[in-house]
Each structure stands twice: as structure tokens, then as C-alpha cells.
Write a protein that binds this DNA or RNA. Structure first.
Length: 566
RNA sequence: GGCGAGGUAGCUCAGUUGGUAAGAGCGACGGAUUCAUAACCCGUAGGUCGGCAGUUCGAAUCUGCCUCUCGCUACCA
């Protein structure tokens, strides 16, 4: 088994509180993180799971404007939706914090102040686009105008990039600029834009260029995509990077001349991992324990993210931590690629997505967890398709795994009155199956500890398939008429397989695992069971067989497809 | 434009460092069986691994060119 540490802190990317969660978010960060944490606990390891809502920044204020409400109402709304979606999928954080909290604000400001005192932050004055109607500086993306490149000249160019020619543009140079924030509120948006000077603070990432390279160098085990991307950035050379913004909604810059400025959300968001950790350990009466994970390299610290966050987790946040000087760096940044939907890009703004809250109105969580692990975008982008979802559920969960559970428990009830029979016949086939149990535990564990969730799940299904093979070859439905000892031995082993299955499936299918254990009459999992002896004993009673994985008919799937095409 | 990822059996995809890896799952076809959610189990199906050229005793796996798809290009997160 890959060398696991005894104690871990696992973080999952903070979801931004201006839109619901969709399957892409889940597949990218939360599900693999949750799966890994569950696995660690079954291995008897200590694991804390940190996440929270990312609640600062411009888009939230604009979202509030659009909906005629306050930013606070926006973040409250999404915080609650996130919370319910996570709970509904069985993604259970040790703490789910909020970056708009006082606690986080203070930790972030202290962090900024320390880095500032170390001399790694510099102040510069630049020119930015300002709207005299909105009385605010505009993020580049909220300015539209005519592209100033001679060979383009198209309208509709945004302040960050021209949609037509694809080039990066300087927002202050756009012709006929229009304020989109004004337009959002029904004003014309023209004639109100000017270019004004404003001061901002910059993090000298360039100072840590070589330290960051060494950091990546010491982690050859990271996923190729993360390393490649990080080296790409380092090869280009790191620049100083603005870490403040002219905004009203966010964490105030803790400097005397920092009035009306807030920290850039990507500066404060990763600090959330730290502040939430501290908050969590305080809440359980171990106020200093957070240092075990943030200052002590002996223990595990892992970030699970989608690939769009790689730059922040593999370069910028480590740079921040180095600049601060009081922290260790993460042991791994586990990034996933993107999930497409029916061959197209998932799009929040166009409402083209499978939303978690809507999914949960129609289905139970485990089939989604299963499917998203089966198509996990670990090495390259992958595609969510409802038909494929149906196929995986029906053909694998229901027909193979679910059916094996069903046929064993039902058989035990039907022909042994639900009393677990003894294994009186020690056959070679039986020994092989028992060995297969141990092989499965070991190999699935190895794959999980290497973050190969897709392979681990495949291995789990092969275990299920081998169990079905064993059952078919032993033909207990025949031996029950001629040799009850042989028959009972087969069922005994089958039930042992089920108990082992309830353990190895738990990281992927926690709800079904709990149901299965209840069905088998074995104690709920409490940690450490992965490598412990199984507890099924002859003479004890099992419950009645229950269908764990119903099949999904077309009439359940088709409406979901129709929904997308609306 | 620059950087990057892909184009492998009908479909979805695996393929560490070049040489019994041309593979899996599903679909399809045939067989066996009845304990089970008409489930399970067994067997079959042959795709010149996008195109061209090259390096090599030998390449899906290395190099160059071509073609197609896609992502990123950092101050929205």
C-alpha cells in the first residue's frame, strides 16, 4: 500500500457563492475529496475535511444588483443551497465555513499584514476604468466596447478579451466603452466611463520563483497535468500580482491607506482553508491543533480542486505561504480536468448543467456518486451523458453489484431461514474466493491511496464480478438439494464477500454501504475496518433482502434529457 | 498568435520507461442456467491505434510535417 500518513487535513475548493453546484463541481473536487477522506478513515487514519463558501468579490455584488437584493442575501441563499447539496450527496465536511465571516476576515487580514511586514507586498498606482454613474471601478469583464485592433474593430469586445479576435485587450483603450453594470440596472451605460488612477497592492511572487520550482521538483508523484501546468507558469516567469481590488464587498485591506479597497478574492479564499481549520479545532476544544497540519510537514495536507484552480493552488497560494513564512506547503494538489455534458461545455450562465439540487429531487445520491467516479476526469476531460448514467446504473450497480447482494441475502433467507450457515466444506474454490476478498481490499486500497479513483472503482466492480462468478460456479441452488454443507459453505463465503463489499464500497457508495451493513446485521462502520477481520459469524441472523440499486427506466431518464434541451 | 490536451474496435474509453498490449466495459451474436432487480455465468466479434515521412532490428508508444477537435492565454471567480 502506498505510504499513507497517520493524520490528514483534506481541503476541497471553495465553491463561489453566486451559482448552484452542478455535476462538474462534484466530479472535479468534492466527490474525490470525500471519497479519499472516507477511505482514510476506514484505514484507521485521522482525517479532517475542510471546505466552505467563497463569498467575497465583485460577481456577488452584481448578482445582488440583478436580483434587487443585498449581497448578504445572495451569499446566504447559496450557502444554504451548497450546504444542502453537499449533505444530500453525503459529502460530509468536518467544517463548512464562510469567507464573509468575521473569523475569516480577521485571519485573512492578519495574513496580509504579516506578508506586508515581511516586505513581500508592494504598492503601485495604475490606471483603471471607472464608472461615474456606478461610482466604482469596473472589473475588466464588465466593460464592453469596440476592439481597438485595426484588423478587428468589432463591437462587443470585453475589457479582458475581444470575443471576435480572441486577443487580450487593455480595458482602458477600448473604443466607445459601455458600463455593463449600468446596463444591468437599466441605465444606458454610455458616457459614464473614465480612466482614473488607483493604488493597489501587489504580491511579489517573482521573489519565490525558484522556491516554487523546487517545491514542484520535490513532488514527482503529482498528476502530470498539474506539474506541466505549474512548470509552464514558472518557465514564463512569475510576476508580481495584484492582490487588492476597488470594491465594497470583501475583506477590507488592513492598512491605513487601504480604505475602500478589499483583498482580491483569490487572496483570501485559500486562506479560508486555514481559517476554517482553526475555527474547526477551536470548536472542538483543541485550539492549537490546526498547527499540526499547517505547520508540521509530518502530517498530510491535500488540496482537491478542478483544473481551473491549478494556478492558485500550485503556484499562487504556495507563494503566499512562502511569503508569510509561517506555514508548510501542501503535500499534493489533486486536480481534475473538466466534465462536459452530453458533449457540450457545462455553462452556468446558460443554465446548461445538471444541478445537484435538481438531481436529488429525482434520484438517490449513490448512483450519481458511482457514475461520476466511473467517468472521473482524472487524466482528460470526460463526458456526462444521461443515457450513459442510466447504463452504468442499470448494468453495473443494479445488475452486477446489486444483484449479487440480492441473490446472496435472499438465498440465505429462503433456504437457511436467514441464519448464516457454517462453512463446513473447505474447498479450493472457497479458499480462492476468500483470497480474492483480501486481494480486492488491498488493491482497491492501493489505487485509492494513489488517487486513482476510476481504477479503484473498476477494481471494486471486478470484485463484484468475481463474486458472481464464484456463486455461479458453486451452483448453491443445486447443492441445496443434494449437499447442504456445500451449499451453506458457499452462502457463508458469499456473505463474507458482502461484508467486505460493504467496506470497500463505502468511500464510493456510503448510503448503500450503510444499508447493506444493516441488511447483514453488522455494526455500522466507525473507522479502521478496511484491514480488520470480517465479523460475519455462522449462527447469526441476516435481515431481509432489499433492492439497493433500482434500475432507471427511460421514463425517468428521458425527462432529464428533455430538461437540458429546453 | 502563443502554450497545452486529444484524435485507438459500433459506442465510451485503458494503454507505465518503444519489442507476446493492440486491450477493457457496453452494444451485437451464440451457449449455459434459474438463487437473484428477465439478473448472473461462458464463448465469439478482429480496429493497418487521424494522415504522411523519418529514427530504430522493431513504434499506438520517439522526431518532423499535415489535418481535425478542444481547453488555457492569468487581475470574473
Amino acid at each position: 500500500m502506498a505510504d499513507l500518513k497517520d493524520r490528514y487535513l483534506v481541503t476541497a475548493a471553495l465553491p463561489y457563492a453566486n451559482g448552484r453546484l452542478h455535476v462538474g463541481h462534484i466530479a472535479g473536487a468534492y466527490l474525490p475529496a470525500d471519497t479519499f477522506v472516507r477511505f482514510l478513515r476506514l484505514m484507521g487514519k485521522e482525517a479532517h475535511f475542510i471546505c466552505g463558501s467563497d463569498e467575497n468579490g465583485a460577481p456577488i455584488t452584481f448578482s445582488a444588483m440583478k436580483n434587487n437584493c443585498s449581497p448578504q442575501e445572495v451569499i446566504d441563499k447559496f450557502h444554504n443551497i451548497f450546504d444542502q447539496s453537499f449533505k444530500g450527496l453525503g459529502i460530509n465536511f468536518s467544517i463548512y465555513g464562510r469567507t464573509h465571516s468575521d473569523y475569516h476576515t480577521k485571519v485573512s487580514q492578519d495574513f496580509f499584514k504579516t506578508v506586508h511586514e515581511q516586505g513581500h507586498i508592494q504598492k503601485h498606482t495604475t490606471e483603471q476604468v471607472y464608472c461615474s454613474e456606478c461610482k466604482m471601478f469596473l472589473p475588466d469583464r464588465y466593460i464592453e466596447g469596440t476592439c481597438y485592433y485595426h484588423d478587428c474593430g468589432k463591437t462587443g469586445a470585453r475589457g479582458d478579451q475581444c470575443e471576435s479576435c480572441g486577443r487580450t485587450v487593455d480595458a482602458t483603450k477600448l473604443k466607445d466603452p459601455v458600463c455593463m453594470v449600468c446596463k444591468m440596472q437599466g441605465r444606458p451605460g454610455t458616457g459614464c466611463i473614465e480612466v482614473k488612477e488607483t493604488a493597489h497592492w501587489y504580491l511579489r511572487l517573482d521573489t519565490f520563483q525558484e522556491d516554487l520550482r523546487k517545491y514542484i521538483d520535490t513532488h514527482p508523484e503529482w498528476r502530470e497535468s498539474v506539474k506541466r501546468f505549474s512548470y509552464g507558469l514558472l518557465d514564463q516567469g512569475l510576476n508580481e500580482r495584484a492582490i487588492t481590488r476597488d470594491l465594497s464587498w470583501g475583506i477590507p485591506v488592513p492598512l491605513e491607506d487601504g480604505q475602500d479597497k478589499v483583498l482580491y478574492v483569490w487572496f483570501d479564499a485559500p486562506i479560508g482553508y486555514i481559517s476554517f481549520t482553526r475555527q474547526y479545532f477551536e470548536s472542538i476544544g483543541k485550539a492549537d491543533e490546526w498547527k499540526e497540519f499547517w505547520c508540521n510537514e509530518e502530517n498530510g495536507l491535500l488540496h482537491f480542486i478542478g483544473k481551473d484552480n491549478t494556478v492558485f493552488h500550485a503556484v499562487m497560494f504556495p507563494g503566499m505561504l512562502l511569503a508569510h513564512g509561517g506555514y508548510r506547503l501542501a503535500g499534493n494538489v489533486v486536480a481534475n480536468e473538466f466534465l462536459n455534458l452530453e458533449g457540450n461545455k457545462i455553462s452556468t450562465s446558460r443554465d446548461y448543467a445538471v444541478w445537484v439540487d435538481e438531481y436529488l429531487e429525482h434520484f438517490s445520491p449513490d448512483p450519481l456518486r458511482y457514475y461520476l467516479s466511473a467517468i472521473a476526469p482524472e487524466a482528460s476531460d470526460s463526458d456526462f451523458s444521461w443515457k450513459d448514467f442510466q447504463q452504468h446504473n442499470n448494468g453495473e450497480l443494479a445488475d452486477n453489484l446489486g444483484n449479487f447482494i440480492q441473490r446472496n441475502v435472499a438465498f440465505c433467507n429462503k433456504y437457511f431461514d436467514g441464519i448464516i450457515p457454517e462453512r463446513k466444506n473447505k474447498t479450493e474454490a472457497g479458499d480462492k474466493m476468500l483470497q480474492e476478498i483480501e486481494d480486492a481490499r488491498k488493491e482497491i486500497g492501493e489505487l485509492l491511496s494513489e488517487f486513482k479513483f476510476k481504477f479503484a472503482l473498476e477494481r471494486m466492480m471486478r470484485f463484484s464480478q468475481r463474486a458472481n462468478q464464484f456463486f455461479a460456479e458453486e451452483t448453491p441452488w443445486q447443492s441445496r438439494k443434494t449437499d447442504m454443507d456445500a451449499c451453506g459453505s458457499t452462502i457463508h463465503i458469499g456473505l463474507l464477500v458482502l461484508e467486505a463489499m460493504s467496506i470497500v464500497m463505502e468511500p464510493f457508495l456510503p448510503f448503500s454501504s450503510a444499508k447493506l451493513r444493516a441488511m447483514l446485521n453488522v455494526a455500522p462502520l466507525k473507522g479502521g475496518e478496511w484491514n480488520q477481520p470480517l465479523t460475519i459469524k455462522a449462527g447469526e441472523k441476516v435481515g431481509t433482502a432489499e433492492v439497493l440499486f433500482p434500475k432507471f427506466d427511460d421514463d425517468l431518464i428521458q425527462p432529464r434529457i428533455d430538461d437540458l434541451n429546453k
